[in-house]
Design a protein around this nucleic acid. Structure first.
Lengths: 361, 361
DNA sequence: CTGTTAGCGCTTTCAA
DNA sequence: TTGAAAGCGCTAACAG
């Protein structure tokens, strides 16, 4: 709240000085009457220096406002500690992924985990290719939820840039992965719904070739087969609220009305409830609802909506852990890890008063 | 979908080769029987070389899988084309900001705009200090919505790192800004509500020292004074659905019931409607609602909710434009620009059939 | 205990 | 038209 802004460029308070060149290590050394080595050692706490000298070097550096040139350090170290981050889906709208709470959290969590280990994360547009950011010194690139035969993955692997992704890259040299067990998650959810009395559970999912979505679909089909149920699948043509709402409408408008809905496409839980209401369902009396979602509104809607969390924070943590290990051991051997999901049972999928499910929140 | 993963590390298909060292420019030169200079020129299209030589260099580079070392280039160029990105709010939960649709979009948009001009954006945790990422070669740092006297801003400016932020940094050397005209936006919204018949408009806003929120609050107070209205302010103790819902509850439960609600704290529009319903209001009959929000669910709720958009994409575009210009001109002179907001009038703030507002969507 | 020297991999004068 | 050499700013051998 310092000044009132006038719009547009300001007049110069001081005449345009040509920006004093940044102070380098050698400048500090000269000023302190020491050598570069000594100052470097003093600042990095490396060598064995007399306290007096060390202090003198530090003081001079501080006084002169010295800041080491990070690029030079990186070159010297041979590592830039930079990781690229792309998502496979949303190629149509390359920057839309953060609008999904899942990706928002995955992205945050990944950046956090990386930074904690000294790596910085650079956000890249979905569906872009390696050539577009070839002049950034990435030590590895994370490809979140690649689509089937994702070109980015191939591109990266061909360029011998370590790739970190989901289990679809398992076994390939230079590729590492973290994944969730989609099958187990689906079974847990469907079992829960069945336990609560559901006999006609419909599923809504995006028309996507992501490993996760494919895995969910086939696990659902298998589960239905095993229980003698007819699969009821509604595909959303695209991501985004509009298309997914339409898919939910389709599922709910079916001639044989479902008694449970498993929404795997990202859709705001309150909007799912609204759709149910619109079609004359009372949740949870006539319709049980579980959403795969990280959306915090699930806990605040009326009724609160049960969610299956993919645990983006755990995914990121486990993933970065693995990636960093691979990077720092120079490990080209593929490795991977599976992270458990978490079913959060809330009112939307509980009949009667039974707490019934895995976890209540 | 290549293989079935076994969990945990894999056995090596090939015995652990020690990772061939990356091929350098000099390797290509040697292989092609040319000098570094020539190959460099050939690859960059710079010098005047015979087509034959140029082709030979290129072919060799391709064949050997040469990729230039980005760090070396950066050192040579004296620029790393890296921009840091921090947000001022959310210091308590440093990575929560992406959960807000506004910041999700602002972040995406900033990354996109930067990348389009050849700069990469690194996401940093809210409230962190310069010293924590001193070894990244940032050319500038963007501080989105700093709180009053934000330590990050001071820190950065002291370290002579160009800062890009909102108008609260206007006039300071090395600082540039982009902002919205909060006052105009508030007045437009309140005028619209009044036009639709509202006489007791309550406002809900976070208890934050952000320039925007302060600006909104004082504009609201001024407007009330000018119209002889009593200000009705409900402050949310914190960001996040819980606290904001409580603030909305407070506003709606007031003894003298409001007839319009202006929600400036980020809250999912369907949840606002739910709160209204819970308190026995019918929107828009008894209560007009406008939210400052970029949440896409606003258009899909029942009724659709009017929003005041801060236009994050325009902000990012204008901001990066300015920042890049400053960076590339070595311009230390502060400069700034104001971006207009946009009121999207939907059913939640329309009485009767009148289209009434600025824009309908 | 401190300083000199040699690179990290690249681009770019400047000579040949 | 091509190549040798200098140097971006830093750190780490190796001498002194």
């Amino acid at each position: 709240m310092t000044e009132a802004p006038g719009s547009g460029g300001h007049a110069s308070p001081t005449p345009s000085r040509p920006a004093p060149p940044r102070v380098r290590l050698v400048d500090v050394a000269r000023e302190a009457g020491l050598s570069k080595t000594t100052v470097s050692a003093a600042l990095n706490g490396t060598g064995r220096l007399s306290p007096a000298v060390r202090e003198k070097a530090r003081e001079t550096a501080r006084r002169m406002g010295y800041r080491p040139n990070a690029t030079a350090r990186q070159l010297r170290a041979g590592r830039a500690r930079l990781i690229g981050y792309v998502v496979g889906e949303f190629a149509g709208r390359p920057w839309a992924y953060l609008e999904s709470p899942y990706f928002a959290q995955l992205t945050s969590a990944t950046a956090a985990a990386a930074l904690r280990r000294g790596y910085a994360l650079v956000m890249l547009p979905a569906g872009s290719l390696q050539s577009e950011w070839a002049d950034l010194p990435f030590e590895a690139v994370i490809v979140a939820d690649p689509v089937a035969d994702d070109a980015v993955v191939e591109d990266l692997l061909a360029a011998r840039i370590p790739v970190f992704s989901d289990a679809s890259v398992a076994g390939r040299t230079g590729a590492h992965w973290v994944d969730v067990d989609a099958g187990a998650a689906v079974r847990e959810t469907l079992d829960h719904l069945r336990e609560q009395g559901a006999r006609r559970t419909a599923i809504v999912l995006p028309d996507s070739t992501t490993r996760f979505h494919q895995g969910v679909l086939s696990a659902y089909r298998d589960w239905c087969a095993a229980h003698g149920d007819t699969p009821r699948v509604a595909l959303a043509a695209d991501a985004g609220n509009g298309p997914v709402v339409r898919a939910v409408d389709d599922a709910l408008a079916a001639a044989e009305r479902p008694d449970a809905l498993f929404v795997v496409a990202e859709l705001s839980p309150p909007l799912v409830l609204e759709a149910a209401r619109r079609h004359g369902y009372d949740v949870p009396r006539d319709l049980l609802v579980v959403c795969v979602s990280e959306d915090a509104t699930a806990a605040h809607s009326d009724p609160p909506v049960s969610t299956l969390s993919l645990q983006p924070w755990e995914i990121a943590e486990a993933g970065i852990e693995l990636l960093v290990r691979a990077l720092e051991k120079g490990d080209e051997q593929p490795s991977g890890v599976l992270v458990p999901t978490r079913l959060l049972v809330r009112e939307s999928s509980r009949h009667g008063g039974g707490s019934g499910g895995t976890v209540s929140v």
